[in-house]
């Protein structure tokens, strides 16, 4: 029996398990394995007497605080999403009504009028497209501000 064969059972020996007599016989005559066994026993002893770290007094408070903040953020997100959905819904309904009225012939717009409207909004459209990112950002800010305002109104009325 070689020392390497014993390496796998040192931990079991350290815990006091009874193994086949060969193992015990080898350890009795081998200082290297005795040292390993001593190390394994020391590790066991130290692990068993290791202090358990205790959480600080304010631990629960701080967890609840973070949970509250996370919930607030989640609600905010839901509210913004809800507002955007409502706005998109309204826009769809309006577009649908206008389209229906148009196709049923209830709504007639003279070609010159359309052209006049086109000419009137053309400069605005092209300048808006040029400043695209800024406008989108402003629109997003406005939407979230309105959403937040709407949410705060809702919370306050509870």
């Amino acid at each position: 029996m070689r020392c390497d064969d014993l390496d796998d059972v040192i931990e079991a020996l350290a815990e006091g398990d009874t193994l086949s007599a060969e193992y015990h016989a080898h350890v009795a005559g081998c200082s290297r394995c005795q040292a390993r066994l001593a190390m394994a026993r020391a590790v066991d002893r130290l692990l068993a007497t290791r202090e358990a770290p205790v959480p600080p007094a304010a631990f629960t408070f701080r967890v609840m605080e973070r949970v509250g903040r996370a919930e607030w953020r989640a609600e905010q997100l839901v509210d913004v999403g809800f507002n955007v959905a409502v706005a998109a819904g309204i826009a769809l309904v309006v577009a649908g009504v206008v389209g229906l009225a148009w196709s049923l012939g209830w709504l007639t717009v003279e070609r010159p009028t359309l052209e006049a409207v086109g000419a009137a909004i053309e400069p605005w459209v092209s300048s808006t497209l040029a400043r695209g990112p800024t406008v989108v950002l402003a629109a997003l800010l406005l939407t979230s501000a309105l959403g937040l305002w709407w949410w705060v109104e809702g919370e306050a009325s509870l």
């Binding site: 290791r50 959480p55 631990f59």
Partner: peptide, 26 residues
């Protein structure tokens, strides 16, 4: 909290970080 904190703090030596990670668990 006791067991979670002990488990985490035994793995992460930095106490402040250990507390943060234990909070993350909850």
């Amino acid at each position: 909290k006791g067991l979670v904190f002990a488990l985490v703090a035994r793995s992460i030596a930095d106490r402040a970080r250990a507390e943060e990670v234990a909070q993350d668990v909850f």
